[in-house]
Simulated scan of single mutants.
Amino acid sequence: MTEPARGGRTRTRLDPEIRREQIVDAAERVFTLRDPSEVTLEEIAEQAGVSRALVHNYFGDRSGVLAAVHLRCTLQLDEALRSISSDPDGTLDEHLVALVDAYLRIAAAKPAAWKLVGTPEATLHPLVVEARRRRCERLADWWGGDAAARLLARSVLGCLDAAVAAWLEQRDLSRGQALEVIHGLLLRGLAGILTQRSARPARAVGDPPR
Results as ranks from 00 to 15, higher is better:
Val39His: 02
Thr40Ser: 12
Thr40Ile: 05
Leu41Trp: 12
Glu42Pro: 03
Glu43Ala: 01
Ile44Trp: 02
Ile44Thr: 04
Ala45Cys: 01
Gly49His: 03
Gly49Thr: 01
Val50Arg: 05
Val50Trp: 03
Ser51Cys: 02
Arg52Gly: 06
Arg52Met: 02
Arg52Phe: 01
Val55Pro: 00
His56Trp: 11
Asn57Leu: 12
Tyr58Leu: 09
Tyr58Val: 05
Phe59Asn: 03
Gly60Leu: 11
Gly60Thr: 07
Asp61Ile: 02
Asp61Trp: 03
Arg62Thr: 13
Ser63Glu: 08
Gly64Ser: 00
Val65Lys: 03
Leu66Gly: 02
Leu66Val: 00
Ala68Tyr: 05
Val69Trp: 01
Val69Pro: 01
His70Leu: 00
Cys73Arg: 15
Thr74Glu: 15
Leu75Trp: 09
Gln76Met: 09
Asp78Gln: 15
Asp78Trp: 11
Asp78Phe: 12
Glu79Cys: 07
Ala80Gly: 07
Arg82Thr: 15
Arg82Met: 11
Ser83Leu: 10
Ser83Val: 10
Ser83Thr: 13
Ser83Gln: 12
Ser85Phe: 08
Ser86Gly: 07
Ser86Leu: 08
Asp87Glu: 15
Pro88Asp: 15
Gly90Glu: 07
Thr91Ala: 06
Leu92Lys: 06
Glu94Ser: 14
Glu94Thr: 14
Glu94Gly: 12
Leu96Arg: 08
Leu96Val: 13
Val97Ser: 12
Leu99Met: 14
Asp101His: 13
Asp101Ser: 14
Tyr103Ile: 03
Leu104Tyr: 04
Arg105Cys: 04
Ile106Cys: 05
Ala108Cys: 07
Ala109Ser: 14
Pro111Arg: 05
Ala112Ser: 14
Ala112Gln: 13
Ala113Cys: 06
Trp114Gly: 03
Trp114Leu: 06
Val117His: 06
Val117Phe: 07
Gly118Lys: 01
Gly118Cys: 04
Thr119Glu: 15
Thr119Asn: 10
Pro120Trp: 03
Pro120Leu: 08
His125Lys: 01
His125Cys: 04
Pro126Gln: 03
Pro126Glu: 04
Leu127Tyr: 09
Leu127Cys: 09
Val129Cys: 00
Val129Tyr: 01
Ala131Gly: 08
Ala131Pro: 00
Arg132Ala: 13
Arg132Met: 14
Arg134Pro: 01
Arg135Phe: 09
Arg135Glu: 11
Glu137Leu: 13
Arg138Val: 10
Leu139Arg: 02
Asp141Glu: 15
Asp141Tyr: 10
Trp142Ile: 08
Trp142Tyr: 13
Trp142His: 12
Trp143Phe: 15
Trp143Val: 06
Gly144Ala: 04
Gly144Thr: 03
Gly145Tyr: 06
Ala147Arg: 09
Ala147Thr: 12
Ala148Ser: 11
Ala149Asn: 05
Ala149Ser: 11
Arg150Ser: 12
Arg150Ala: 13
Leu151Ile: 13
Leu151Asp: 14
Leu151Ala: 15
Arg154Val: 07
Arg154Glu: 15
Ser155Glu: 09
Ser155His: 05
Val156Gly: 07
Leu157Arg: 05
Gly158Pro: 01
Leu160Met: 09
Leu160Cys: 02
Leu160Asp: 06
Asp161Phe: 10
Asp161Ser: 07
Ala162Val: 08
Ala162Leu: 13
Ala163Cys: 09
Val164Met: 09
Val164Asn: 08
Val164Cys: 07
Ala165Ser: 11
Ala166Gly: 08
Ala166Lys: 09
Trp167Asn: 02
Trp167Glu: 10
Leu168His: 08
Leu168Lys: 09
Glu169Gln: 12
Glu169Gly: 05
